[in-house]
Amino acid sequence: MMIFKLKTDFSKEDLQKSYKKLVKKYHPDSNPKNQEWSHNKMTEINLAYEACCSYLESNNEINQENPNYQPAKEQNKDTNEQNLKAHKKKQQNSKINQEITPDLYKRILNISNIYTEASEIFFEYGLEKRKLRYEGVRRFRYRESLRIFDDAVNKTTELDQYCKTEYDQYAVNLFLRFTGNLFHYIQLDERHIPDHPLLNRHWDLMEEYMLYSIKDYLVPHLVHNFRKMSANTSFTQCWNQLIYLQTRFPALDEDKTFKICHNLADSLREIRREEYEMQYNFFNYSES
Protein backbone atom coordinates (compact mmCIF):
# COMPACT_ATOMS: atom_id res chain seq x y z
CA MET A 1 0.00 0.00 0.00
CA MET A 2 2.96 2.31 0.60
CA ILE A 3 3.94 2.39 -3.08
CA PHE A 4 0.46 3.70 -3.93
CA LYS A 5 0.36 6.02 -0.88
CA LEU A 6 -3.02 4.63 0.24
CA LYS A 7 -4.65 4.47 3.64
CA THR A 8 -5.51 1.10 5.22
CA ASP A 9 -9.20 1.46 4.34
CA PHE A 10 -8.61 2.21 0.64
CA SER A 11 -11.20 1.30 -2.00
CA LYS A 12 -10.78 -0.31 -5.41
CA GLU A 13 -11.31 3.08 -7.05
CA ASP A 14 -8.52 4.60 -4.93
CA LEU A 15 -6.18 1.78 -5.93
CA GLN A 16 -6.93 2.04 -9.65
CA LYS A 17 -6.53 5.82 -9.64
CA SER A 18 -3.11 5.60 -8.00
CA TYR A 19 -2.09 2.67 -10.20
CA LYS A 20 -2.90 4.56 -13.42
CA LYS A 21 -0.82 7.54 -12.30
CA LEU A 22 2.21 5.35 -11.63
CA VAL A 23 1.82 3.45 -14.90
CA LYS A 24 1.68 6.69 -16.83
CA LYS A 25 4.88 7.86 -15.16
CA TYR A 26 6.96 4.66 -15.20
CA HIS A 27 5.74 2.71 -18.24
CA PRO A 28 8.51 1.77 -20.76
CA ASP A 29 6.73 3.71 -23.49
CA SER A 30 7.11 6.86 -21.38
CA ASN A 31 10.80 6.16 -20.72
CA PRO A 32 12.35 5.10 -24.03
CA LYS A 33 15.90 5.90 -22.84
CA ASN A 34 15.60 3.87 -19.61
CA GLN A 35 13.88 0.67 -20.72
CA GLU A 36 15.48 -1.72 -18.22
CA TRP A 37 14.90 0.60 -15.26
CA SER A 38 11.34 1.20 -16.41
CA HIS A 39 10.59 -2.50 -16.78
CA ASN A 40 11.91 -3.18 -13.26
CA LYS A 41 9.83 -0.33 -11.89
CA MET A 42 6.68 -1.60 -13.64
CA THR A 43 7.29 -5.09 -12.29
CA GLU A 44 7.44 -3.66 -8.76
CA ILE A 45 4.24 -1.68 -9.34
CA ASN A 46 2.38 -4.65 -10.85
CA LEU A 47 3.38 -6.95 -8.00
CA ALA A 48 2.17 -4.37 -5.47
CA TYR A 49 -1.07 -3.89 -7.42
CA GLU A 50 -1.71 -7.64 -7.46
CA ALA A 51 -1.10 -7.86 -3.69
CA CYS A 52 -3.52 -4.98 -3.03
CA CYS A 53 -6.19 -6.58 -5.23
CA SER A 54 -5.84 -9.84 -3.28
CA TYR A 55 -6.12 -7.88 -0.03
CA LEU A 56 -9.33 -6.19 -1.22
CA GLU A 57 -10.80 -9.45 -2.49
CA SER A 58 -10.13 -11.25 0.79
CA ASN A 59 -11.68 -8.44 2.82
CA ASN A 60 -14.77 -8.31 0.59
CA GLU A 61 -15.35 -12.06 0.79
CA ILE A 62 -14.98 -12.06 4.57
CA ASN A 63 -17.28 -9.06 4.81
CA GLN A 64 -20.02 -10.82 2.82
CA GLU A 65 -19.84 -13.96 4.92
CA ASN A 66 -19.71 -12.19 8.29
CA PRO A 67 -22.21 -9.33 8.77
CA ASN A 68 -20.47 -8.36 12.01
CA TYR A 69 -17.15 -7.82 10.25
CA GLN A 70 -15.72 -4.30 10.65
CA PRO A 71 -13.14 -2.45 8.52
CA ALA A 72 -9.51 -3.35 9.11
CA LYS A 73 -8.71 -0.04 10.76
CA GLU A 74 -11.29 -0.77 13.48
CA GLN A 75 -10.03 -4.25 14.21
CA ASN A 76 -6.80 -5.54 15.62
CA LYS A 77 -4.37 -7.60 13.58
CA ASP A 78 -5.17 -10.90 15.30
CA THR A 79 -8.88 -10.65 14.47
CA ASN A 80 -8.13 -10.00 10.81
CA GLU A 81 -5.87 -13.02 10.59
CA GLN A 82 -8.43 -15.26 12.29
CA ASN A 83 -11.16 -14.21 9.86
CA LEU A 84 -8.90 -14.82 6.87
CA LYS A 85 -7.88 -18.27 8.12
CA ALA A 86 -11.51 -19.17 8.74
CA HIS A 87 -12.41 -18.09 5.22
CA LYS A 88 -9.63 -20.17 3.65
CA LYS A 89 -10.61 -23.18 5.74
CA LYS A 90 -14.22 -22.84 4.57
CA GLN A 91 -13.05 -22.73 0.94
CA GLN A 92 -11.07 -25.93 1.38
CA ASN A 93 -13.89 -27.74 3.20
CA SER A 94 -16.28 -26.90 0.36
CA LYS A 95 -14.72 -29.65 -1.75
CA ILE A 96 -16.35 -33.06 -1.40
CA ASN A 97 -13.04 -34.90 -1.07
CA GLN A 98 -9.74 -33.20 -0.35
CA GLU A 99 -7.48 -36.17 -1.04
CA ILE A 100 -6.45 -37.81 -4.27
CA THR A 101 -6.80 -41.58 -4.25
CA PRO A 102 -3.25 -42.89 -3.53
CA ASP A 103 -3.15 -45.18 -6.59
CA LEU A 104 -4.22 -42.31 -8.87
CA TYR A 105 -1.70 -39.92 -7.31
CA LYS A 106 1.08 -42.45 -7.89
CA ARG A 107 0.07 -42.73 -11.55
CA ILE A 108 0.07 -38.93 -11.90
CA LEU A 109 3.60 -38.77 -10.49
CA ASN A 110 4.78 -41.55 -12.82
CA ILE A 111 3.40 -39.69 -15.84
CA SER A 112 4.86 -36.40 -14.58
CA ASN A 113 8.28 -38.04 -14.73
CA ILE A 114 7.73 -38.58 -18.46
CA TYR A 115 6.88 -34.88 -18.88
CA THR A 116 10.01 -34.02 -16.91
CA GLU A 117 12.13 -36.21 -19.18
CA ALA A 118 10.74 -34.48 -22.27
CA SER A 119 11.23 -31.06 -20.66
CA GLU A 120 14.84 -31.85 -19.81
CA ILE A 121 15.60 -32.59 -23.46
CA PHE A 122 13.64 -29.54 -24.60
CA PHE A 123 15.42 -27.05 -22.33
CA GLU A 124 18.86 -28.69 -22.22
CA TYR A 125 19.22 -28.28 -25.98
CA GLY A 126 17.80 -24.76 -26.01
CA LEU A 127 14.76 -25.79 -28.03
CA GLU A 128 12.71 -22.97 -26.54
CA LYS A 129 14.57 -20.86 -29.14
CA ARG A 130 12.49 -21.80 -32.16
CA LYS A 131 15.15 -21.05 -34.79
CA LEU A 132 17.46 -23.69 -33.25
CA ARG A 133 14.97 -26.55 -33.53
CA TYR A 134 15.94 -27.39 -37.09
CA GLU A 135 19.74 -27.18 -36.77
CA GLY A 136 21.84 -30.36 -36.71
CA VAL A 137 21.39 -32.61 -33.69
CA ARG A 138 18.79 -30.26 -32.17
CA ARG A 139 16.38 -31.26 -34.92
CA PHE A 140 16.44 -34.86 -33.69
CA ARG A 141 16.23 -33.83 -30.04
CA TYR A 142 13.19 -31.68 -30.78
CA ARG A 143 11.44 -34.60 -32.46
CA GLU A 144 12.42 -36.83 -29.55
CA SER A 145 10.96 -34.41 -26.99
CA LEU A 146 7.74 -34.13 -29.01
CA ARG A 147 7.44 -37.91 -29.16
CA ILE A 148 7.87 -38.21 -25.38
CA PHE A 149 5.41 -35.37 -24.74
CA ASP A 150 2.89 -37.06 -27.05
CA ASP A 151 3.30 -40.35 -25.19
CA ALA A 152 2.75 -38.58 -21.87
CA VAL A 153 -0.39 -36.82 -23.15
CA ASN A 154 -1.86 -40.16 -24.27
CA LYS A 155 -1.16 -41.71 -20.87
CA THR A 156 -2.70 -38.69 -19.14
CA THR A 157 -5.97 -39.05 -21.06
CA GLU A 158 -6.26 -42.60 -19.67
CA LEU A 159 -6.27 -41.43 -16.05
CA ASP A 160 -10.06 -41.00 -15.99
CA GLN A 161 -10.57 -44.73 -15.46
CA TYR A 162 -8.69 -44.53 -12.15
CA CYS A 163 -10.80 -41.70 -10.68
CA LYS A 164 -12.89 -42.84 -7.71
CA THR A 165 -14.04 -39.51 -6.28
CA GLU A 166 -15.08 -36.13 -7.61
CA TYR A 167 -11.83 -34.63 -6.34
CA ASP A 168 -9.88 -37.29 -8.25
CA GLN A 169 -11.57 -36.11 -11.44
CA TYR A 170 -10.95 -32.48 -10.54
CA ALA A 171 -7.22 -33.13 -9.97
CA VAL A 172 -6.89 -35.12 -13.21
CA ASN A 173 -8.57 -32.33 -15.16
CA LEU A 174 -6.10 -29.80 -13.69
CA PHE A 175 -3.13 -32.00 -14.59
CA LEU A 176 -4.47 -32.75 -18.07
CA ARG A 177 -5.24 -29.11 -18.79
CA PHE A 178 -1.77 -27.89 -17.84
CA THR A 179 0.17 -30.65 -19.60
CA GLY A 180 -2.01 -30.41 -22.71
CA ASN A 181 -1.49 -26.65 -22.91
CA LEU A 182 2.24 -27.14 -22.44
CA PHE A 183 2.33 -29.63 -25.33
CA HIS A 184 0.50 -27.15 -27.59
CA TYR A 185 2.84 -24.35 -26.56
CA ILE A 186 6.12 -26.14 -27.34
CA GLN A 187 4.89 -26.92 -30.87
CA LEU A 188 4.58 -23.23 -31.78
CA ASP A 189 7.14 -22.12 -34.35
CA GLU A 190 8.26 -18.80 -35.82
CA ARG A 191 5.40 -18.45 -38.27
CA HIS A 192 2.88 -18.50 -35.40
CA ILE A 193 4.34 -15.45 -33.68
CA PRO A 194 2.70 -12.07 -34.51
CA ASP A 195 4.86 -9.81 -36.67
CA HIS A 196 4.73 -6.31 -35.22
CA PRO A 197 7.80 -4.35 -33.94
CA LEU A 198 6.24 -2.97 -30.74
CA LEU A 199 4.19 -6.08 -30.06
CA ASN A 200 7.18 -8.38 -30.54
CA ARG A 201 9.26 -6.47 -27.99
CA HIS A 202 6.68 -7.15 -25.29
CA TRP A 203 5.90 -10.62 -26.63
CA ASP A 204 9.54 -11.69 -26.29
CA LEU A 205 9.61 -10.43 -22.72
CA MET A 206 6.42 -12.32 -21.86
CA GLU A 207 7.76 -15.54 -23.38
CA GLU A 208 11.03 -15.21 -21.48
CA TYR A 209 9.13 -15.02 -18.19
CA MET A 210 6.83 -17.85 -19.28
CA LEU A 211 9.76 -20.13 -20.12
CA TYR A 212 11.54 -19.46 -16.83
CA SER A 213 8.31 -20.26 -14.98
CA ILE A 214 7.89 -23.58 -16.79
CA LYS A 215 11.59 -24.42 -16.54
CA ASP A 216 11.72 -23.73 -12.79
CA TYR A 217 8.54 -25.73 -12.30
CA LEU A 218 9.38 -28.87 -14.30
CA VAL A 219 13.16 -29.24 -14.23
CA PRO A 220 14.61 -27.34 -11.25
CA HIS A 221 17.85 -29.36 -11.24
CA LEU A 222 18.64 -28.09 -14.73
CA VAL A 223 18.32 -24.44 -13.84
CA HIS A 224 19.26 -24.37 -10.16
CA ASN A 225 22.68 -22.84 -10.72
CA PHE A 226 21.95 -20.35 -13.46
CA ARG A 227 18.27 -19.35 -13.49
CA LYS A 228 17.66 -15.60 -13.52
CA MET A 229 14.62 -15.52 -11.27
CA SER A 230 12.40 -17.69 -9.09
CA ALA A 231 9.37 -19.46 -10.56
CA ASN A 232 6.95 -17.32 -8.55
CA THR A 233 8.53 -14.06 -9.66
CA SER A 234 8.79 -15.10 -13.30
CA PHE A 235 5.20 -16.30 -13.39
CA THR A 236 3.91 -13.06 -11.86
CA GLN A 237 5.83 -11.04 -14.45
CA CYS A 238 4.59 -13.31 -17.22
CA TRP A 239 0.98 -12.85 -16.11
CA ASN A 240 1.34 -9.08 -15.87
CA GLN A 241 2.84 -9.00 -19.36
CA LEU A 242 -0.04 -11.09 -20.73
CA ILE A 243 -2.57 -8.69 -19.27
CA TYR A 244 -0.64 -5.73 -20.68
CA LEU A 245 -0.57 -7.28 -24.18
CA GLN A 246 -4.26 -8.07 -23.98
CA THR A 247 -5.04 -4.47 -22.98
CA ARG A 248 -2.65 -2.76 -25.40
CA PHE A 249 -3.49 -4.99 -28.38
CA PRO A 250 -7.18 -6.03 -28.11
CA ALA A 251 -7.01 -7.92 -31.43
CA LEU A 252 -4.84 -10.53 -29.68
CA ASP A 253 -7.99 -11.95 -28.07
CA GLU A 254 -8.74 -13.55 -31.44
CA ASP A 255 -5.16 -14.74 -32.04
CA LYS A 256 -4.70 -18.52 -31.65
CA THR A 257 -1.08 -18.22 -30.52
CA PHE A 258 -1.95 -15.72 -27.80
CA LYS A 259 -4.75 -18.00 -26.61
CA ILE A 260 -2.33 -20.90 -26.32
CA CYS A 261 0.08 -18.78 -24.23
CA HIS A 262 -2.74 -17.40 -22.10
CA ASN A 263 -4.23 -20.87 -21.53
CA LEU A 264 -0.84 -22.25 -20.51
CA ALA A 265 -0.27 -19.47 -17.98
CA ASP A 266 -3.82 -19.82 -16.65
CA SER A 267 -3.56 -23.61 -16.25
CA LEU A 268 -0.16 -23.28 -14.55
CA ARG A 269 -1.65 -20.81 -12.08
CA GLU A 270 -4.53 -23.17 -11.28
CA ILE A 271 -2.43 -26.27 -10.76
CA ARG A 272 0.09 -24.45 -8.56
CA ARG A 273 -2.70 -22.92 -6.48
CA GLU A 274 -4.13 -26.38 -5.90
CA GLU A 275 -0.70 -27.70 -4.92
CA TYR A 276 -0.34 -24.91 -2.40
CA GLU A 277 -3.82 -25.28 -0.89
CA MET A 278 -3.91 -29.09 -0.75
CA GLN A 279 -0.18 -29.74 -0.19
CA TYR A 280 0.21 -31.87 -3.32
CA ASN A 281 3.08 -31.95 -5.80
CA PHE A 282 2.05 -32.94 -9.30
CA PHE A 283 5.70 -32.90 -10.34
CA ASN A 284 8.83 -33.92 -8.45
CA TYR A 285 10.87 -30.92 -7.30
CA SER A 286 13.93 -32.70 -5.88
CA GLU A 287 17.25 -32.00 -7.53
CA SER A 288 19.14 -34.88 -9.13
Rank of each mutant, 00 (worst) to 15 (best):
P250R: 03
A251L: 10
S234H: 03
L222D: 03
Q246D: 10
P220I: 09
Q237K: 11
L242A: 05
S230D: 10
L245Y: 01
Q241H: 03
Q241P: 00
F258L: 02
Q246C: 07
S234C: 09
K259Q: 15
Q241R: 04
T257Y: 02
L245F: 02
C238V: 03
L242D: 00
C238Y: 08
N232S: 15
V223H: 14
H224E: 12
A231I: 02
H224Q: 12
T233C: 09
T247S: 12
H221G: 05
H221A: 11
R248D: 06
A251G: 05
N225S: 15
L222M: 12
R227Q: 14
Q246R: 11
D253T: 05
C238G: 11
Y244S: 02
I243F: 11
K256F: 07
I260H: 01
L242F: 08
L242Q: 08
T233Y: 07
N232F: 13
T233G: 08
N225E: 15
L252M: 08
N240H: 13
W239Q: 09
I243L: 14
L245I: 02
K259V: 02
T233M: 10
K259R: 12
W239K: 14
M229G: 06
P220K: 08
W239P: 01
F258C: 01
F235Q: 05
L252V: 02
T233V: 14
M229R: 13
N232K: 15
L252C: 03
A251D: 11
H224G: 03
A251F: 11
C238Q: 08
N240K: 07
M229A: 12
H221I: 04
S234I: 03
R227Y: 05
A231C: 01
L252D: 02
F258A: 00
T233D: 11
T247N: 12
Y244E: 05
M229H: 07
L242V: 09
Q246L: 08
S230L: 07
Q246A: 08
T257S: 11
N225M: 14
K228C: 06
T247V: 09
Y244D: 03
H224K: 13
D255A: 05
N240L: 05
S230F: 06
M229S: 15
H221K: 13
K259D: 07
V223F: 15
I260R: 05
S234E: 03
L245E: 00
Q246G: 04
T236P: 01
A231Q: 06
A251K: 13
S230Q: 07
T236K: 10
F258Q: 00
K228W: 06
K256H: 10
K228A: 12
A231N: 00
Q237M: 09
Y244A: 03
A231G: 04
P220V: 10
T257L: 04
Q241Y: 05
R227S: 14
M229W: 03
F258G: 00
L245R: 00
C238P: 07
T233F: 10
M229E: 13
Q246P: 01
L242N: 06
H224S: 12
A231S: 06
P250V: 02
N225R: 15
Q237W: 06
F226L: 01
T257I: 04
D253V: 04
Q241E: 08
S234R: 02
T247K: 12
H224D: 10
V223I: 15
T236I: 11
K228Y: 08
K256N: 12
F226E: 01
H221N: 13
H221Y: 14
D253H: 08
L222S: 07
